[in-house]
Design a protein around this nucleic acid. Structure first.
Length: 352
RNA sequence: AUCUCACUCCA
């Protein structure tokens, strides 16, 4: 069962969720008893798989209980994060309260997962209440807790609060890392405080904290919004000399900044360059391309990319359709817009 | 053998 569990985990990591699910069935048919870890892996599989797998998660939890298995920190955080991905905050709260009423004492990992889903959903008062509760229960916050608090403030637009926590972490014995800095830099950038963001970026480096690809992507995105392309090139060169390879998000970020009047030529060029560098497009890349062409005023290219996206085997999502409609609306082609709406409905999406 | 934090796309 250990070997099978390892294999299940490998499938999960590779996003081969259906393979994991069928292997899990096979395991049970062979008469092997899944362990707590096996169940935890499967909960994670259903948590990451799209569609309506929440019921499946509940039935797995039932099955675990029927087999006499007690949940642990892995189980709890996995289930809570699964709720978060689906926007099922109430379900997460219910699950958490049930845990406690059954006598489970939540540990820091469970608290962290709850804090992160509330924070990500923009409910920062609730997120902060989790922090309060964990401290009251003598649970010691760790670096992830602090990073989540900083990210929660940052997302809510409270960059000063975020920066304050960043500065005070060290006094609690927890050093800010590249994740902490990236959160606050991003908050400054989103608030139009480019100077503060760049200052913090320099400060982190001066303090010996090494920026990673996410940090660089954050800076690139911020500069891109302001069309500061010269500085973007400097950043890309700095990445290169620091041995930090651009990832798909880096390319998507650069593509997004090409969505400006008169920059239409660059969209296609950057996309080609991306592929030449061995970075394959994902669904976000196609959404970015559609939006970028729309901003360039080229609805025709946007429609072309949509076809390319479908041909490449990616399923359009609501964002895709909204971006496409936006692109088409710019040229006033209501006929094309109606057919996109139709297409959207046929694929099971409701306009929002 | 398993979990929780930051970066890109429409609005």
């Amino acid at each position: 069962i250990r070997s099978y569990t390892t294999l299940l985990h490998a499938y999960a990591r590779a996003c081969n969720y259906n393979k994991a699910i069928s292997l899990f069935e096979e395991i049970k048919q062979k008469g092997l008893s899944p362990t707590l870890v096996t169940y935890n892996v499967m909960l994670d599989v259903y948590g990451r798989k799209g569609g309506r797998s929440w019921d499946k998660i509940l039935s797995l939890l039932d099955e675990m209980r029927n087999n006499g298995l007690e949940v642990d920190e892995f189980t709890c955080s996995t289930v809570i994060s699964a709720c978060g991905r689906r926007g099922l905050l109430d379900e997460a709260t219910k699950f958490f309260n049930q845990l406690k009423s059954r006598g489970y004492v939540p540990g820091i990992v469970t608290y962290n997962s709850l804090l992160q889903i509330y924070g990500k959903a923009g409910n920062y008062p609730l997120a902060l209440s989790v922090f309060k509760e964990l401290e009251e229960n003598n649970c010691t916050p760790d670096s992830i807790t602090y990073n989540e608090i900083v990210a929660t403030y940052a997302r809510a637009g409270f960059y000063e609060e975020g920066a304050k926590v960043l500065d005070s972490m060290a006094t609690k014995g927890i050093m800010p890392n590249s994740i902490t800095y990236t959160s606050v830099i991003n908050a400054y950038g989103k608030a139009g405080k480019e100077d503060e963001a760049l200052f913090l970026f320099h400060r982190m480096k001066k303090l010996g904290c090494v920026p990673n690809v996410c940090t660089y992507n954050t800076i690139l995105g911020m500069l891109g919004k302001k069309s500061r392309s010269k500085e973007m090139l400097d950043i890309l060169l700095e990445m290169k000399s620091n041995g930090c390879s651009p990832n798909r998000v880096t390319w998507n970020t650069v593509l997004a900044m090409c969505g400006k009047r008169g920059m239409e030529k660059f969209v296609g060029r950057v996309f080609e360059e991306m592929k030449n560098c061995g970075v394959g497009p994902d669904r976000d890349t196609f959404n970015t391309l559609i939006a970028a062409y729309g901003r360039c005023g080229s609805g025709a290219h946007a429609l072309q990319i949509y076809d390319e996206m479908v041909k490449a085997g990616f399923s359009p999502c609501l964002t895709t359709y909204n971006a496409l409609l936006n692109a088409i609306a710019r040229k006033g082609d209501w006929g094309a817009a109606e057919s996109v709406i139709l297409d959207m409905r046929n694929n099971g999406f409701k306009p929002n």
